[in-house]
């Protein structure tokens, strides 16, 4: 049970690489924060600074009421789940879970109680005598979770814990981790580069780019009101389409654009907001040629090259639509679904 407060954290690696530049973030007690961003944006670095595995170049970090900048990982009352699990290969599952407690001189029966409780919770009680190499990837993942659970720490830190699992197991573990976290109400910091994982698991998600925070907010806030072109492109799949305002004016949609805030020269449109049939509500109308139709089960993606422009756009529709590749189609976008951006700053306008 603890809050985590980051105040203007910086990390400069030995070679001069600035991996994290000026990150401030307040994490409430029991909150699940997901750090998401492209590869190399500094997610792991930030997490490892919180864990105490990387030194903090500048700024202050508090866990609970304590300033922990100079504390060893073991003294910070955190537990970490690593991407490749980092289980001790020569120890049984039981010993893997118990190791941290033994080092902290817990009494034997307390260790027993906690290990069995965690094993029960994670359904690995049957494997306590096995070595990690005799477990499947999913089971190893659970053991790694178990090692964090038994410690009953103030905060859990996860560094892409699901990225070594296959797609199906990933969804299952995602749900389990989230349920567990909600039940235990332990403050958690979770790193992923998977935007879907971020959206589904987070209380609040933090989008990082180039060592800086692009946006912090609830998943719905971030999805519905991306604060920058970067966030718009990163969160949501398929990615948001970006249309030039000048192009839209040329296609005769000018009257619909008059309501946009000053300075808008880029319009974002989610693939779901491009419609084949014109709605009742005020909307923009566009035409384009179907480049590719991609059925994906319950939904389909249509790649369209807009008329009079080389810009490809992606739309997502339910089921299999009645369109042919190469055919010209009409598209509509409700005015309420436009995301206005200024290309000079890359930020949302208004």
């Amino acid at each position: 049970m603890a809050t985590i407060v980051m105040d203007d954290l910086h990390k400069v690696y030995a070679g001069g690489v600035k991996a994290v530049t000026g990150i401030s973030l307040d994490i409430a007690d029991g909150e699940m924060i997901v750090l998401v961003g492209p590869s190399g944006c500094g997610k792991s670095t930030l997490l490892r600074m919180v864990a105490g595995l990387e030194t903090i170049s500048d700024g202050t970090l508090k866990i609970g009421d304590r300033m922990v900048n100079n504390l060893e990982p073991a003294e910070r009352d955190i537990a970490m789940v690593f991407q490749n699990y980092a289980l001790y290969p020569h120890m049984t599952v039981f010993d893997n879970l118990a190791y941290g407690l033994r080092n902290r001189k817990f009494p034997k029966d307390e260790i027993n109680r906690r290990v069995h409780e965690a094993a029960e919770m994670l359904e690995i009680a049957a494997y306590l005598d096995r070595k990690p190499r005799n477990l499947s990837g999913g089971q190893r993942q659970r053991v790694a979770m178990g090692r964090a659970l038994v410690r009953e720490p103030a905060a859990f830190l996860f560094d892409e814990p699901l990225s070594n699992l296959d797609a199906k197991l990933r969804v299952q573990m995602r749900v389990e981790i989230r349920q567990l976290q909600k039940r235990l109400k332990t403050t958690s910091l979770y790193v992923t580069h998977d935007q879907l994982e971020a959206l589904t698991m987070a209380d609040r998600l933090v989008v990082l780019n180039g060592g800086k925070i692009e946006q912090v907010g609830t998943p719905m806030d971030v999805f519905n009101k991306p604060a920058s072109v970067f966030v718009a492109g990163f969160i949501g799949s398929p990615a948001m389409n970006m249309l030039d305002v000048a192009y839209l004016r040329d296609t005769g949609a000018a009257q619909g654009l008059s309501g946009l805030p000053q300075g808008t020269d880029l319009i974002g449109v989610r693939p779901d907001d491009l419609l084949l049939n014109a709605p009742e509500a005020p909307h923009l109308s566009l035409t384009g040629d179907v480049v590719l139709l991609e059925p994906a089960g319950s939904e389909s993606h249509i790649y369209v090259s807009l008329a009079g422009s080389s810009q490809p756009v992606t739309m997502r529709v339910q089921g299999l639509p009645n369109v042919l590749e190469g055919a010209r189609i009409n598209l509509s976008v409700p005015l309420s679904a436009l995301h206005p951006f200024a290309s000079a700053t890359g930020l949302r306008v208004g």
Partner: peptide, 9 residues
Amino acid sequence: MEAARVDGA
């Protein structure tokens, strides 16, 4: 090694 550090070794 990092896991061991977190585990207090």
